[in-house]
Design a protein around this nucleic acid. Structure first.
Lengths: 190, 190, 190, 190
DNA sequence: TAATAAACGAGACGGTACGTCTCGTCTTACA
DNA sequence: TGTAAGACGAGACGTACCGTCTCGTTTATTA
């Protein structure tokens, strides 16, 4: 049985989230989080293995509870636009941008964190995406032989890539073009 | 005219590249690079603004001169397999994996570095990819209305995503599936 | 009326005494004592005001009950040798050396502890020494005008000084020389 | 050859000396010294092995250069009074009391420090004391067979003991009584 | 023979300081 | 005069303990 102080936990996550937005991940320090949260450093080290883990929890906290199903109006392309446009907006939200970049960087180096990310964040969200595509598949709108995990990456990875590397504009046009191209294919239509 | 010591420059870049492979980016320090290179710290600070910039130069050095054109046998799908399979191998090369992850992380946070990356690395490579797709377009194999930059992202971003986030296996099968899906589209063929 | 757990008290004093011998006073911690004694920290803080007080009690415990009178064979010089030789042996006992050094240091800084030490340890022992000297005085062996407290210091302080500061060898020869010199005086005998 | 910054050295020693007087040794911290001196912690750790070593150097600094010879008017007892009264005053000087207690405590635990103390402080001072006694010996005032090191301890150790342990008043009377008793001896004069 | 109240073990908490590490700047000696 | 070597002020790292503060869990009277 844990006697963990919930108020401290909240304060730490909030402080971490706020600080990363204010000063950026590279300037973020455990000492800074502890000080801002009014908490001893050991209380952070007691419950989290790394700065990245704190941040991941902070993100989970602000993302709130389990997200509901993705929209399904029967029109796959329209629904994908709705969804990907929202993703674009998330990426462009300055409050989230910093935290997510920081988290992605940590995940890139830390296998343990990557596993937690895969299980707690990517997994559930990916399942929702797969579910929406599976529905379309069953409705006869998508190729029945499609590997849905690859399909998810085909649709979302381009957004991630542009956001992370800034190799081009990340806007609704780009999202729409990605959807169209992914659905119809790049090959010449006869 | 700079009185820059070319031998020191080489030693620094080599040391940086080797060290990042041995101890990882997070343990990499300017002191370590200077010590390994037999160079004063000031010599590094004099010529590079940041650890990331050194690493980027190191990467540019080892990647050697300008890469030649991508293969064009006339069979677009086969050529894309050749190219993306090679990309997969690069991502899986342990010598490159660490450096590239480090660089991507730095780019994610550092706009200046992102600009250099865009200009010196992504730009030239992307131009080669665009050129190969344009040839296919002109040969009537790709939709003439296609935005080639989006097309490049549709093909390569899924690889980047799986490599960086480890959200699924990164192998030739995945690359092949991506190519097929991107070319033919996800929608049901009547 | 206290419901104090005597077993815990014993365990704490024993643990403190043992630990100070093993790791030294500076490494000694309340946490360490509590852990070794299988006791909660609060149980220590409940009954002792400081680490030094625990140690002083530990010393009192191991030194056992009230010491009997000092030997009085009628031959003052011989008796002083017996007594001071025993003191030298105590100082050189490795089991006691550490604890006593620690205690002396604490006393040097902590007035409260100094008072307890004066009352519980130095007082009774000094009284015994005074008593032996007073007997010699009454037997006409010592100068009747002698201040006995000063005399006690003249005899014992040199041992303390050599032991504490290691400014010279602490052995029976030194003790014997001190006794002779103190009894006869340093001045030239005509 | 060192490139040591003399200004920093001075600032550290001064800060250490001042702080120990203000807050006492037990509250004295390396961080505090560094902060007060406007110096990085590493600069302290670079040049001193311990807090005690800093303090010892601080004491050496304030005690200034090599002390001149002790007074020799030909009247040994009067000279000893002059000298021991001055020692009593030093012990009672609040500016020195704290530093010296701290140092003595450290020396009691740290063999290395004890060696430095013996060589740099006790040695030279003891030599001066020995020299004065030797002069008296040659003048026929002291017993020719006297071991001068023991004699020094007989005279000074009682002061040290009373100062350190507070087992009795430390004043000129006590010093005078010690001198008289040490010179004439405790035994009954016929 | 309960009930009740303290002392207990355990250990989380907000803190301070530790001694180490690296940062980016500044200084010195050499070649 | 530029370079290696490295000292410097700064400050974060992760650890160890501090002394305080709950938590349930013994004990051991008191009602």
């Amino acid at each position: 049985m844990t006697r963990r102080n919930e108020a401290s936990r909240q304060a730490i996550l909030t402080a971490a989230f706020d600080l990363v937005g204010e000063i950026g991940y590279s300037k973020l320090s455990v000492e800074g989080i502890a000080s801002r949260a009014g908490v001893g450093k050991q209380t952070i080290y007691r419950w989290w293995p790394s700065k990245g883990a704190v941040l991941l929890d902070a993100l989970l906290m602000t993302m709130g509870g389990p997200v509901g199903d993705l929209p399904d109006t029967g029109d796959l392309e329209a629904d994908l636009r709705t969804i990907l446009f929202a993703t674009v907006e998330e990426f462009r939200d300055p409050r989230l941008d910093g935290v997510m970049r920081a988290l992605i960087s940590e995940i890139a180096h830390d296998d343990g964190l990557a596993a937690i990310y895969a299980e707690r964040i990517d997994g559930p969200v990916r399942e929702l995406k797969r579910r929406r595509l599976r529905a379309a598949q069953q409705a006869g709108q998508l190729d029945p032989g499609l590997d849905l995990d690859t399909a998810v990456d085909l649709l979302w990875a381009p957004l991630l890539s542009r956001w992370l590397l800034r190799t081009g504009p990340l806007d609704h046009d780009f999202a729409a073009a990605t959807i169209t191209m992914a659905l119809s294919g790049m090959s010449r239509k006869m």
